[in-house]
Amino acid sequence: MGKLVRERGFWPAGNFHVPPVGSNPFGVQGLKTIAYELVEELGEAPDAVIVPTSRGDLIWGIWEGFRECRTRGEISHLPRMVAVEPFPRLTRVLHGEDWRGQFEGRSSLASIDGFTVTYQAVAAVTESGGTAVSVTDQEVAWAWKEAARSGLLLESSSASVLVAVLRLVNSGWLKKEESVVAIGTSHGFKERSPHERDQ
């Protein structure tokens, strides 16, 4: 992408810097509308929003949207933002590691894979009093099947949020009476099922 921007004048919608700084601000600003729509539908902010996270554009955009809704007096509280990742990256940063480092790991969750963390992802989680949850391919394969049985055909990276919700409820971090929104970022037609990939 960097070569196309430099040599051919392409407009970068995504990030191409290392360490990453997040994507083009115009793209990230557009993600705020997810928070606007949630507030419109729910009439208030949920207690927590669970987001599949790679570099953090989505979680930051949603967080910014909720902060704007609060500033305008449309909601009475801000939600806690939870980043779901395929192996500990942001989790390690929250425990003291430098966010500018590289975090090695292996995962089949292509949409949220990667070895870096952005400051905006750290800020969205810490400013909101949220957390990060790392999930395994095996857990996500189970969640994918459960979602499909309920009529939701999600991409595996999107199914990761179901694992996070269950883990946070079981640990007591989320109370059963709290309102939670789990963001599904993509449909399952773009990939084979986790069961098929393992064969």
Rank of each mutant, 00 (worst) to 15 (best):
W11A: 11
P12L: 07
A13Q: 12
F16V: 01
H17W: 09
G22T: 10
G22C: 10
N24W: 11
N24E: 15
F26G: 11
L31N: 02
T33G: 08
I34V: 15
I34W: 08
A35R: 08
Y36R: 12
V39D: 00
L42I: 04
E44W: 08
A48W: 13
I50L: 10
T53W: 14
T53R: 11
S54P: 00
W60Q: 00
E64S: 15
F66Y: 15
R72I: 03
S76Y: 12
L78N: 07
L78D: 03
P79H: 11
R80L: 09
M81C: 05
M81S: 02
V84K: 00
P86D: 04
P88Y: 02
R89G: 01
R89C: 00
T91G: 03
V93I: 01
G96Q: 08
G96M: 07
D98A: 03
D98N: 06
W99M: 09
G105M: 12
G105E: 10
R106I: 11
S111P: 08
I112T: 01
V117W: 05
T118N: 12
Y119F: 13
Q120S: 14
Q120N: 12
Q120H: 11
A124V: 03
V125S: 01
V125K: 02
T126M: 10
G129N: 13
T131E: 06
